[in-house]
């Protein structure tokens, strides 16, 4: 990939994370290195338990690494910043706030005046298609709608980088496809950088400019640019020979990664 020039946004070097369990250290991620270019869409593909979520938690600054460094925009990550938005696997909407107030929450914390908040949240609610549900509490929404509200909340802070941890994993196939299309629409032309973690080969190929396949403990098995033309349509791609070849290659890489 590129050297240390201006296009490099995220640089991870020798990252290791181990958790303490009783008297043992459980290694979740070992000596992991990766650079991400500004404005790119990187999908990280790996089976469950390969350290994907740990990786994102570290990059988001939620947990400190055991060793190694993460540099974001040339500065070391020591804690969460609002420049990085992180959509975790589970929904973390505040159950006591309705959709609108949930979406406004990051702006509230940033000290955005109320009128501006209302305006922006209205925009975002329209963007993610939740019109008419502003006053609903999370428990009154379906899983898909909660996901969208969470997405809107993340976007309301105007992050320049999005970390997405299997964001659509819990949705049904149809809805997942819609959300993927929507995500691409939001991303294209926004200049945002996306790191998208998934265990789904097709999703990885459909979305990413580049797919990084992780094996156990975050070993990089394959790091491959994806040059399929956008917009990508899953139904068309499925019979595209280039796509099929890539699918096979990634599948092999996943198997390989599981071995050692």
């Amino acid at each position: 990939m590129t050297g240390p020039d201006t296009t490099e946004l995220l640089r991870i070097d020798g990252l290791t994370k181990q958790f303490v369990k009783d008297d043992m250290g459980v290694v979740a991620l070992r000596d992991f290195s990766l650079t991400v270019e500004r404005g790119s869409f990187v999908t990280v593909l790996g089976r469950s338990g390969c350290g994907k979520s740990t990786l994102l938690n570290l990059v988001a600054g939620l947990v400190p690494p055991s060793s190694g460094t993460i540099a974001y925009n040339g500065r070391n990550v020591t804690g969460p910043t609002t420049e990085i938005g992180y959509l975790t696997q589970s929904d973390t909407l505040m159950p006591w706030r309705d959709v609108r107030r949930n979406i406004e929450m990051p702006m509230e914390i940033a000290g955005v005046p109320a009128r501006k908040r209302a305006e922006r949240s209205r925009e975002l609610i329209a963007t993610v298609g939740l019109d008419g549900f502003e006053r609903h509490y999370p428990r009154e929404l379906s899983g898909g709608m909660r996901r969208r509200a969470t997405l809107a909340r993340m976007l309301s802070a105007d992050p320049e980088t999005l970390l997405l941890d299997e964001p659509f994993g819990a949705l049904d196939a149809q809805l997942r496809k819609e959300m993927q299309t929507e995500l691409l629409r939001l991303w294209q032309g926004s200049g945002q950088t996306v790191v998208f973690v998934t265990h789904d080969i097709e999703e990885a190929l459909l979305l990413g400019d580049r797919v990084v396949v992780l094996g156990r403990l975050g070993r990089i098995v394959l790091d491959k640019p994806i040059e399929l033309a956008r917009p990508r349509d899953a139904d068309v791609l499925r019979v595209d020979p280039a796509f099929v070849a890539l699918h096979g290659e990634l599948n092999e890489a996943l198997k390989e990664g599981a071995k050692t």
């Binding site: 939620l62 609002t82 990085i84 973390t92």
Partner: peptide, 11 residues
């Protein structure tokens, strides 16, 4: 996780 969510918002 809710606490982490607020930390991510810069709280």
């Amino acid at each position: 996780q809710l606490v982490d969510a607020v930390r991510l918002m810069g709280g």
